[in-house]
């Protein structure tokens, strides 16, 4: 039987051709990027007015390099709100950007993938782990269901990124995960979550803010045994993470809770 997520991707990509925007490099190849769409700018106020966003305190914001999040990145930069983002395909790992270092004239430029790393600085795993926990993680996707199961472009980048942050103890029970999609990408059905799926708390569309109840991400982790042979195997962050977790385990730096979790889940 065909993978259920594949089935939905196909139907929704068809719809997305009508309201989506092509990528500067990949044109309409939705398997290579998460598309921007008509009305994505209307999602911004919905996100920044969420209680978990306004009350985030020192908690950091993680954003994926998806095209539909351009307007959100532009808003954050224009309002001096720093955030952390990965490069496309996580190939060059994580970067953080401090808007105060970006001239006012270049903030919208820095909100694009083409402009981002002109001003953002790379953060390695050790530096990432030393910082504040993440209060908010925002991603796009190909489709998302009523119970918060999201499908990306089919590579599993966001699930990997979120699992990585979890392994680094940078995710708390209060961390809120937001998925930004067009209305046509919302599937009003309960769909089964796979073990590695990061279920989201909020689905934000240009017209609706949908809160997902009873979300459980307590079992999130990196599935090391599934990495060989995938594109994650060759990533710098994968090797760095393995090394970092090894060294902290040995030096006892990680919290007991975390150690228990790692041990209990093989």
């Amino acid at each position: 039987m065909a993978d259920i997520s594949e089935e939905y991707r196909e139907i929704i990509w068809e719809e997305l051709l009508k309201v989506g925007r092509p990528d500067s490099r990949f044109h309409w190849d939705f398997s290579s990027f998460i598309a921007d769409f008509e009305g994505s700018d209307q999602c911004v106020s919905r996100i920044v007015n969420l209680d978990s966003f306004t009350s985030r305190g020192a908690g950091r914001i993680f954003i994926t390099p998806d095209n539909c999040l351009f307007s959100l990145r532009a808003y954050l930069l224009e309002n001096d709100i720093p955030f952390v983002m990965t490069t496309y395909g996580i190939v060059r790992g994580f970067y953080e950007i401090d808007p105060r270092k970006v001239p006012a004239s270049d903030r919208r430029f820095a909100a694009t993938l083409d402009g981002f790393d002109m001003y953002a600085t790379p953060v390695n795993i050790e530096q990432l782990a030393a910082g504040e926990k993440f209060a908010v993680a925002v991603t796009g996707g190909s489709a998302v269901s009523r119970n918060g199961v999201r499908f990306g472009k089919g590579h599993g980048y966001f699930d990997f990124e979120y699992a990585l942050l979890t392994e680094l103890d940078l995710i708390s029970p209060d961390t809120v995960v937001v998925d930004v999609v067009h209305d046509c990408q919302y599937v009003d059905k309960e769909l089964p979550a796979k073990e590695h799926d990061v279920v989201v708390d909020w689905v934000i569309t240009p017209t609706r803010s949908i809160s997902i109840e009873n979300v459980d991400r307590s079992q999130t982790r990196i599935f090391w045994d599934r990495i060989p042979g995938t594109e994650f195997e060759g990533l710098g962050v994968t090797k760095e993470l393995a090394k970092f977790l090894d060294s902290t385990k040995n030096s006892g730096l990680r919290s007991n809770k975390q150690k228990q979790q790692s041990r209990g889940k093989i």
Partner: peptide
């Protein structure tokens, strides 16, 4: 893939130029 894009410098605001010069923003 989508033909050519014609950008007119005198019609683009200074604050948008950086964005308009990128492949991501020009369209």
């Amino acid at each position: 893939t989508r033909g050519f894009v014609l950008l007119k410098g005198n019609l683009i605001k200074a604050v948008d130029r950086g964005l308009a010069a990128t492949l991501d923003g020009m369209e």
